[in-house]
Design a protein around this nucleic acid. Structure first.
Lengths: 189, 189
DNA sequence: ACAAATAACTAACAACTGTTAGTTTAAGAA
DNA sequence: TTCTTAAACTAACAGTTGTTAGTTATTTGT
């Protein structure tokens, strides 16, 4: 059974997503949970704290996933497909906290912000290297890797918002179409 | 010469982009402009007002552009290229207010929010139709038009954030690469 | 130069923010 | 039962928010 702390974090994530971090008050969260704002502090120690946890947990999930995929011995183009599949999975499993990564990270306090951007930069760098490798392998036509990275990443980052609008879409099907759309376009013919 | 009202709107846009609508106070804006918060009200009538103007002006620019392109007699695939070129141009010319369209529109009051989402939905519908037409024309392979739309649009919507990070990129070059990345991938081989 | 209008200022408002202190209730162990 | 602990409550804090009122300074047209 879920701890109260986690219930609070879930509610907060949902509200942060819907109204944004700044526009969500502790009283809003309290109401959603079903208690008074002050009572929240029996379980958490600040608004920033849960926000940081939501964001950095998610960022670390991505980092771990990347580490595992990039560390594998697959061909780069397979790594890329696995990355896409991971993004699709996360977008479905963690719709709320994933939205914070794309939109709300600016509201992190100084130190966690540094950690976050560092994780993020590292992630992007590894992602770009995989794309470069795809080109060197001759699997991709010689596109600008930075632009390809940007194009792929922005699509993947908005997945969550789009997925929650579509009702009748099969996750497996979505993943397949996604790979088709993002990878096959760059393929060498 | 720029009116004070427009200076205020420019500063506001810059701050809204950097810190978000809710996190930007009238005192923040005032400081940026170089006057007291109360003095702003000699030129504007509320925080929401300038926010709405920034957002809806931008939305209307897109609608007009779409109307012009879609109303032309070009082949659909040419229309698509023109749309991409428009997005690139806007992302460069209006970096600040364009960011609001992707991120901050949630903070619109009820009625302008309705207008905004209506414009947006209409825009997306026309965009999707052009993609469908590309498929019917045989210029695109038979992808899921909804997924293609989503993929292209999310890339185009994040252009601004990415463009402001890159220093040494030629707009013309960017546009060419963009079209290559987004369109050529879907092309029938 | 003088009147009128424009745009800056200071001070203050009511509402709301995150958070703390202190108190009461409920639950579990002895 | 009684003692202890966890978790809810109410009340209030100090700071910030958007905005208004009232006043002073500056610019403009005659």
């Amino acid at each position: 059974m879920k701890s109260k702390r986690e219930i609070i974090k879930d509610c907060a994530a949902r509200l942060f997503r819907k109204k944004g971090y700044k526009a969500t008050s502790m009283r809003d969260i309290a109401q959603e949970v079903g208690m008074e704002a002050a009572s929240l502090y029996n379980h958490i120690s600040s608004k920033q704290e849960i926000f940081q946890e939501l964001l950095l947990n998610m960022a670390r999930l991505f980092t771990e996933g990347m580490e595992e995929i990039d560390g594998s011995s697959h061909k780069s183009i397979i790594k890329l497909e696995k990355l896409i599949s991971m993004h699709v999975r996360f977008a479905i499993e963690h719709t709320d906290s994933i939205s914070l990564i794309t939109n709300e990270w600016v509201h992190l306090d100084e130190e966690p912000l540094r950690e976050f951007t560092s994780l993020r930069d590292q992630y992007e760098k590894q992602f770009e290297n995989i794309i470069k490798q795809c080109i060197e392998d001759g699997d991709f036509s010689p596109v600008d890797p930075e632009i390809a990275l940007f194009s792929i990443l922005s699509t993947l980052r908005w997945l969550y918002s789009w997925y929650s609008k579509q009702k009748n879409i099969n996750p497996v099907e979505l993943e397949k179409e996604m790979i088709h759309c993002l990878v096959d376009g760059l393929r060498n013919k």
